[in-house]
């Protein structure tokens, strides 16, 4: 028995050494927020962030692996070390920045927008749906409108279609394809709102080395224009680029 334990330790030690050479970076994402990240027909993570993440890993010479997780537990699982980065359309906010670190943004501060069935909805006093625990939900709660919270972004849009909510408030990038595909049923209403400091990659505060690597990779993509190409590819011509 004792011998067995010794061999396992030896194995663990060698594994530890091997690790120092080729580390696998686990990328945590939600997989339910197109076009940022979603599961394609094969059931794999796909979308803007998949392409971006893979490119960043190549540039930083890292081996990466994708993990999907529930939005609710995405930060606790990161700080507890179940994966090493969050790359899930997460806006950089002061509150989040206190707990985790962000790379520089890879999407410029983006607009959040209201979408409704008719153009005459009063977004300041109506019933507005938003995904629970997002910055949009927080914004609506403060705006004085009646906030209706759903667990998934899918349900927030459905609630406007079935009349439960007057409008949905979410990232504009998420809403644009939905409005385009709706065949005129859904329209943008009111002014867009700028929330957060753009979308960045989240990392543990103690992982400064890894953050620097990704920061450099993002910078290099910004410099040679590949990031802009990628943004246009996934979000269309009209969005802000760097």
């Amino acid at each position: 028995m004792k011998k067995m334990i010794l061999t396992t330790t030896a194995l663990a030690l060698t594994a530890g050494m091997a690790l120092a050479q080729s580390q696998t970076i686990r990328m945590g994402t939600e997989g339910a927020y197109p076009p940022y990240n979603f599961l394609n027909d094969k059931g794999e993570v796909d979308g803007f962030e998949r392409e971006l993440g893979d490119e960043l890993c190549t540039r930083a010479e890292l081996t990466c692996e994708w993990v999907t997780t529930d939005w609710d537990g995405i930060i606790p699982n990161l700080v507890s070390g179940n994966y090493d980065t969050i790359i899930a359309g997460m806006s950089i906010t002061a509150e989040r920045d206190e707990v985790i670190d962000f790379t520089q943004n890879y999407i410029p501060p983006a607009a959040s927008a209201y979408v409704a069935l008719s153009a005459d909805v009063d977004v300041a006093s109506g019933v507005i749906s938003a995904q629970a625990s997002t910055i949009q939900a927080g914004y609506v709660a403060e705006s004085g409108a009646t906030l209706l919270e759903f667990a998934t972004p899918e349900e927030t849009v459905a609630s406007v279609r079935n009349g439960e909510a007057d409008a949905v408030f979410a990232d504009k990038d998420y809403l644009v394809p939905i409005v385009e595909e709706s065949g005129g049923a859904l329209t943008f209403v009111a002014e867009d709102v700028q929330l957060g400091g753009g979308v960045g990659m989240g990392l543990r505060e103690s992982d400064t080395e890894l953050r620097d690597k990704f920061d450099a990779a993002i910078q290099s993509m910004k410099d040679d224009g590949t990031l802009n190409t990628l943004i246009v590819k996934w979000f269309g011509e009209d969005v802000d680029t760097f």
């Binding site: 749906s129 906030l147 209706l148 349900e155």
Partner: peptide, 15 residues
């Protein structure tokens, strides 16, 4: 859905 952030004990715990 929770309306105007009126929810049950688990809702606030999650908040």
């Amino acid at each position: 859905p929770a309306q105007q952030q009126k929810g049950d004990a688990l809702y606030y715990a999650r908040y």
